[in-house]
Design a protein around this nucleic acid. Structure first.
Lengths: 163, 163
DNA sequence: ATAACTGCAAAGAGTTTGCAAAGAC
DNA sequence: GTCTTTGCAAACTCTTTGCAGTTAT
C-alpha cells in the first residue's frame, strides 16, 4: 500500500547546486546567443515564466530559440542556482531569476505574474522546530503564494463586473 | 513581458461536479464499486498517492478500476474537500484523505509517502501579516514538505551505502 | 426508460531525448 | 578537427475527453 510512485531520478541534479560549482568552468559560459536570449528574457523580470512562455516570448522578439534549448538552458540555470523554480497549479514549471544565493520564497500575483521575494527567517525557524518535532530529517520545502498585487486589485476594483 | 501563461480553463469541466454541494444530494452517493474501491484505497492511509499509483494498486487487488475513473473520482473527492492534493516535484498530483474540514499542511516522507498533518496556526499568522505587509489580497498558498520519516531514516542508516 | 457511471481509446499539454547539422575554439 | 550547442521530431508521462456500452433506479 505504501504506494511507491517512481522515485525522482536521485536528485543529483538539483542537489549539487553550490557543490563543485566554482571550478573554473563547468557548463558555465552560458554565452551562446540562445542562452543569452533566455537570460535576457529572465533578467530583471520580477515574474515567474514558464519554458513555453519564454519560448513564445522570444519567438515574438528578434531572437527565436528552440523550445528544447529553452528547456535545457533553464535546467542548467536551475542547477546553477541562478533561477528559482516553482510548479504552478497546472503542473507547469515556472522560473524566475534568483538574486541572492539563499533559499527564497515569493509572493506571486496570479494576474500579472509580478512577484516579490519575502523574508522568511521566522518561517524557517518554525519549520526547523516542526520537522524536529516529528522526527523527520532532510526536509526540503516548497512554499508558494498566489494572490493579487495591489495594482491588479485596484484595476479589478475599477472595472467591477468584467470577466 | 508580463508573460501570461494560459489561465486555467475556468474549471467548468471540473466545476460541474460539486458546486452547489450541500443540496440534499448532488453527485454524492459515491457508492459505485469503483468509487468505493478508490475510497478504500485512500481510507486510513497516511500517504499521498497519485492517480496512477492508486490505479496500479487497485489493479493488483481484487478491484481493477479504469484510470479515467480513478481520475474522475479523485477530482470529485477533491472538489468535495474529502481529500487534499499536492503536486510532487515531478509534477504529478498526489492525494490523501482529509480528516478535518480545515485547510491542512503535511510533512511527507519522500521515501514511503507517509505523511503527518502539522498544526500551522503560527505559520498562518505569519502569512497573514506578510501578505498584508506587501499589499497583496486574496492570497492562496501552497506549502509542501518532503523529507525522510524516522522509519526511512533508520532504514537508510542500516544499509549504509545502498543506492 | 432515464440518468449516471464505466472503460477504452484518442487527444492534449508539458517535458525530455536522440541525432544530425551548425558553431565555437 | 574536436567538443559543444542547436533545432527538429519523436517519445514519454500525466491528465482530460468523447463516446458507446453498462448499471442502477
Amino acid at each position: 500500500m505504501p504506494e511507491r510512485r517512481t522515485l525522482h531520478p536521485p536528485h543529483r541534479s538539483t542537489a549539487r547546486h553550490g557543490a563543485e560549482r566554482p571550478s573554473g568552468r563547468g557548463l558555465l559560459p552560458l554565452n551562446t546567443p540562445q542562452q543569452k536570449a533566455v537570460l535576457r528574457a529572465l533578467a530583471g523580470l520580477d515574474v515567474f515564466a514558464s519554458a513555453q512562455g519564454i519560448h513564445r516570448h522570444l519567438r515574438g522578439q528578434d531572437a527565436p530559440v528552440s523550445l528544447s534549448t529553452v528547456y535545457r538552458t533553464l535546467a542548467t540555470l536551475e542547477h546553477l542556482g541562478l533561477v528559482d523554480a516553482v510548479r504552478d497549479s497546472r503542473g507547469e514549471k515556472a522560473y524566475r531569476r534568483r538574486d541572492t544565493s539563499e533559499h527564497q520564497h515569493y509572493l506571486i500575483c496570479r494576474q500579472c505574474g509580478y512577484s516579490v521575494p519575502i523574508p522568511c527567517e521566522e518561517f524557517e525557524e518554525w519549520l526547523a522546530a516542526t520537522q524536529r518535532r516529528y522526527g523527520f530529517v532532510d526536509v526540503r520545502h516548497m512554499l508558494t503564494f498566489e494572490g493579487l498585487c495591489r495594482g491588479c486589485r485596484d484595476r479589478r476594483a475599477a472595472q467591477p463586473l468584467a470577466p
